Simulated scan of single mutants.
Amino acid sequence: MMAIPVDPPFQTDAVAQVFGAFPDAACVDLLRLRALIFATAAEIPDLGPLTETLKWGQPAYLPAAPRIGTAVRLGISKPSGTALFVHCQTSLIADFRQTFPDTLTTEGTRAVIFAPGSALPDAPLRLLIRDALTYHRKRG
């Protein structure tokens, strides 16, 4: 991995190693998404700290407290580009697609896909991240 500032620092060496294995261009994009996840989480009242871990070999971010939200994962989409993944059995991507039909490319019920080096639409992504990190709060 090229020398890219990481803020906040990685919580585990395992996550750092996964980021280090990404191609440089993808790593830059994924670190931008990671920073957006932490910034969005910091704005959610009573969310508490985020846990940064690996799920299915991908960097994953979820509230440290149980039953608040679902994980947001980062990785490379098989068709192309980088991706922000959510649990496929949630309504998050369908809700996102309905609210922002022409904003970003989605992949089924599990991901939002980004072209390499593309601009990140801040407001829609913050809403998706917020909805994922508080998913269980909204459902009872």
Results as ranks from 00 to 15, higher is better:
residue 20 G to I: 03
residue 57 G to I: 07
residue 100 F to D: 02
residue 47 L to K: 06
residue 102 D to W: 08
residue 16 A to H: 10
residue 72 V to T: 02
residue 70 T to P: 03
residue 119 A to F: 07
residue 46 D to H: 14
residue 107 E to Q: 13
residue 26 A to K: 08
residue 23 P to L: 02
residue 82 T to A: 04
residue 67 R to W: 12
residue 62 L to H: 09
residue 34 R to Q: 09
residue 90 T to C: 05
residue 63 P to M: 13
residue 42 A to L: 00
residue 11 Q to M: 04
residue 125 L to P: 09
residue 110 R to P: 13
residue 116 P to D: 11
residue 129 I to Y: 01
residue 2 M to W: 05
residue 48 G to R: 09
residue 9 P to R: 05
residue 130 R to T: 15
residue 59 P to G: 10
residue 31 L to Y: 07
residue 7 D to L: 07
residue 100 F to H: 07
residue 62 L to I: 12
residue 127 L to E: 14
residue 44 I to Y: 09
residue 75 G to I: 01
residue 127 L to M: 06
residue 114 F to V: 05
residue 111 A to H: 02
residue 78 K to P: 02
residue 79 P to A: 06
residue 92 L to F: 00
residue 80 S to K: 15
residue 31 L to Q: 12
residue 25 A to Q: 15
residue 39 A to G: 12
residue 129 I to W: 01
residue 86 V to G: 00
residue 23 P to Q: 07
residue 93 I to P: 08
residue 40 T to L: 01
residue 97 R to L: 08
residue 67 R to F: 14
residue 46 D to Q: 13
residue 13 D to H: 09
residue 28 V to D: 11
residue 132 A to I: 10
residue 1 M to D: 11
residue 61 Y to S: 11
residue 134 T to N: 10
residue 58 Q to V: 00
residue 69 G to M: 10
residue 123 A to N: 09
residue 52 E to N: 05
residue 18 V to F: 00
residue 59 P to I: 04
residue 76 I to S: 10
residue 86 V to D: 05
residue 25 A to R: 14
residue 47 L to C: 05
residue 76 I to Y: 11
residue 22 F to H: 12
residue 6 V to N: 03
residue 115 A to F: 02
residue 127 L to R: 14
residue 47 L to Y: 05
residue 99 T to L: 13
residue 10 F to N: 08
residue 62 L to S: 10
residue 89 Q to N: 13
residue 61 Y to N: 10
residue 70 T to N: 00
residue 84 L to T: 05
residue 136 H to E: 12
residue 89 Q to M: 07
residue 59 P to T: 07
residue 80 S to R: 15
residue 136 H to Q: 15
residue 31 L to P: 09
residue 131 D to H: 10
residue 8 P to A: 01
residue 21 A to H: 12
residue 107 E to T: 08
residue 45 P to M: 08
residue 64 A to N: 14
residue 137 R to N: 15
residue 51 T to V: 15
residue 131 D to F: 01
residue 139 R to D: 14
residue 120 L to N: 07
residue 111 A to D: 06
residue 34 R to Y: 06
residue 48 G to A: 00
residue 122 D to W: 04
residue 135 Y to F: 12
residue 7 D to T: 13
residue 66 P to E: 15
residue 53 T to E: 14
residue 38 F to K: 03
residue 40 T to Q: 03
residue 102 D to Q: 14
residue 68 I to N: 13
residue 47 L to W: 01
residue 110 R to H: 08
residue 41 A to R: 09
residue 65 A to K: 15
residue 104 L to G: 08
residue 77 S to T: 04
residue 19 F to S: 05
residue 42 A to V: 04
residue 98 Q to L: 11
residue 40 T to A: 00
residue 71 A to V: 03
residue 116 P to S: 06
residue 57 G to K: 14
residue 132 A to F: 00
residue 16 A to Y: 04
residue 104 L to I: 10
residue 35 A to Q: 14
